[in-house]
Structure formats: structure tokens, C-alpha cells
Design a protein around this nucleic acid. Structure first.
Length: 326
DNA sequence: CGCATTTGACCTGCGC
DNA sequence: GCGCAGGTCAAATGCG
């Protein structure tokens, strides 16, 4: 699985339309007339306006929601980062003073990043968490070299099951209601290979119950049974691989507007925008790309958000994530 | 009938 | 040592 499919600039791309919608209504008529001309078709402008307005409202609401999410993610990221920094610097100074309750400590810390919707966080366990040196105190810990990774999966609100389709076969062996989350946590073991030590915990996020948090412990000692299936399966769940989010483009006087349609899958993209103009034309595509690039790079919000996204990506890449970057 | 899931009991580690 | 909370076990149950 490619890392690029997990980390995506989609949030950044929403900045432009959102701002447009919030600050001043876009000169739609112009855009539409351009659009019509490009399409070379005579379509009722009224009908188109109505449809576009509807879509615009919907996308605007979607974008607002996403922006709020992004804010929360950034806040939590910063908080977590400062916590980690503080913790690491503390441990660098006095490595002997370690909390004995590492098991539950790590859990409580990791809960903070539960807002990274659509992202997967893979991190090493004790060996990467600067508490290595107490392995000398507790020899049992040395055996636990299992990798712990985390995956966030958005589900449909109506979906109450705790099943995360990740291509492996899992057997549920327990369920428990934990203190910090009213939603039960389900425990799974990899059942594809009898010797496979991998375990998985799945629990709904406290903040957003439509998000499942799957925590993987250990590494599979066998290949994925359905790697190919996984990519093409029509699962109702959408593992948030944002790399393939469908988008639509439109032209207005101030340049092209990129609108990511995050609510529709590729197959169900039913916002029936008017028949596309000759987008296939290489000249038009080049023009679009140039306009998009220039408008994005001029936008300070975009550049700052991009910087934040990149810094987050760098952080992620610093931890060993071989498993998920395959 | 075989397998997966459910669920209450039990085990283990940690804090007080 | 006791209580609490998370994790695991295994008998009961459900389903194909």
C-alpha cells in the first residue's frame, strides 16, 4: 500500500472553494456562461443555476465540516507533538525515572490522535518510544517487539459493526466496553495463518463515532490473502484513501475552482454537472492545470496548510512504516 | 454439523 | 492487599 494514498492534499484543495463561498459568492453567471460556451451546448441557464446552487450549498457544508475536522486534527497534532517532545526531552535528561505503567500510558497518549481521520499512524512500540532503557529492568518487554500501527476507517453512520476490511482474515475473540469510550472495543486475532501473532483492536472514535479506530499489534508472518481483492472490493466502507477522490473543476472570472467531491464514490458521482466541456482537449487540460497551480500557489492559506501537511508527513515518515508503505 | 461470534468469567497489571 | 480496568478464555449461541 502506498503511503501517498493515505496522505493527501485534498484538504488543502478545499480551501479555495470554501473561502470563495464564505467570503463572497462567486460570479457564477460568468462561470456558467463560460462553461456553456465551452460545452458548446444550449442548456437552460436557469436549470443549471438551480442545480449548481444546490451542489454549491452541499459542497459548502461539506467543506465547512472538513475544515472543522482539519482544525481539530491540527490542534490535536500540535498537542500530541508537544507532549511527545516534552516527554522525550524529559527522558533524555533522566532516563531512570520512568513510569511503570507504560502499557496504559501509551494507550492514553495514543488516544489523542484519534482525530486523524483518514490517516494511518504507524509507530513502533516500546523501542521507538524512548522507554527502551527499561527493557533492562523488565526482560519480558524485550520479547514484545511487535509493531503497533493504527488505522482510521470511516464507516457509514448506519453501520454499527466493528469490522474493518483490510484484506486479512480475522477471528473475533472478545469484546469489551472500556472506560474512556462508551462504544465497545472488539478484539480480533489473525485467523489466516494459525501461527500469525497479529492482533487487532477495533473501536469507534469517541469524537466521531462514524470513524473506526483499528489498532494492529504485531506483523503478519504471511502474505495478505486478498491483496488484490482489497483494492477492487466494493466494500461499503471507505478506507480513506483520499488519493482517488473525484473532483470537478469549473471556471470563473478569478480562475478555476477545484471542488473535491468527498461525498461520492467514483461510481456514484451523481451530481450531474452539465456535460463537461471539451476537457479532453489537451489545450484545455493544460490551461486548467496551469490555472489551478497558479491559483493554489498564490493562496497563502493553501501554502500554510500545505506546509502543515508536509510537516505532518515528514513526521510520519520518520517512524518505521514498512508495513503500510508497501 | 462445523465454524464464527457473543458474552460472562477469569487473569493480569497497575494505582492507591 | 484490594479494587479497577484492560485483555483473554471458553462455553453458549447463532448461522449457513
Amino acid at each position: 500500500m502506498e503511503y501517498s494514498s493515505w496522505i493527501n492534499t485534498s484538504l488543502d484543495l478545499n480551501i479555495k472553494p470554501l473561502r470563495l463561498l464564505d467570503d463572497a459568492p462567486p460570479p457564477k453567471k460568468e462561470a456558467e456562461s463560460d462553461f456553456m460556451e465551452l460545452a458548446g451546448r444550449k442548456v437552460s441557464v436557469k436549470e443549471e443555476t438551480g442545480a449548481l446552487m444546490e451542489e454549491l450549498n452541499r459542497v459548502s457544508a461539506e467543506n465547512r465540516k472538513l475544515t472543522q475536522m482539519l482544525t481539530v486534527v491540527c490542534e490535536n497534532y500540535n498537542a500530541l507533538r508537544s507532549q511527545v517532545m516534552e516527554y522525550m526531552s524529559k527522558n533524555a535528561d533522566k532516563s531512570s525515572d520512568l513510569s511503570p505503567s507504560r502499557k496504559r500510558k501509551s494507550e492514553s497518549i495514543s488516544n489523542n490522535d484519534a482525530n486523524n481521520y483518514g490517516a494511518m499512524v504507524a509507530n513502533g512500540t516500546s523501542e521507538s518510544s524512548s522507554t527502551d532503557d527499561d527493557s533492562s529492568k523488565n526482560p519480558r518487554e524485550e520479547k514484545i517487539t511487535a509493531k503497533i500501527s493504527r488505522m482510521y476507517v470511516r464507516t457509514e453512520p448506519s453501520d454499527t459493526s466493528l469490522i474493518v476490511k483490510d484484506g486479512y482474515q480475522w477471528r473475533k475473540y472478545g469484546q469489551k466496553v472500556t472506560r474512556d469510550n462508551p462504544c465497545p472495543r472488539a478484539y480480533f486475532k489473525c485467523s489466516f495463518a494459525p501461527t500469525c501473532p497479529v492482533k487487532k483492536k477495533v473501536q469507534r472514535s469517541v469524537e466521531d463515532q462514524s470513524v473506526l479506530v483499528a489498532t494492529y499489534e504485531g506483523e503478519h508472518n504471511h502474505p495478505s490473502p486478498s491483496q488484490a481483492d482489497q483494492e477492487t472490493s466494493g466494500s461499503t466502507r471507505c478506507v480513506t484513501t483520499l488519493g482517488s477522490v473525484p473532483c470537478s473543476t469549473a471556471l470563473n472570472s478569478s480562475g478555476p475552482t477545484i471542488t473535491l467531491d468527498l461525498t461520492k464514490s467514483k461510481s456514484s458521482n451523481e451530481i450531474k454537472t452539465p456535460p463537461r466541456p471539451k476537457v479532453e482537449s489537451p489545450e484545455f487540460q493544460r490551461f486548467l492545470v496551469e490555472q489551478m497551480a497558479s491559483s493554489l500557489t498564490k493562496d497563502p492559506s493553501f501554502t500554510s496548510a500545505l506546509a502543515a501537511a508536509i510537516s505532518g508527513r515528514i513526521q510520519l515518515h520518520q517512524s518505521p512504516t514498512e508495513k503500510w508503505s508497501k
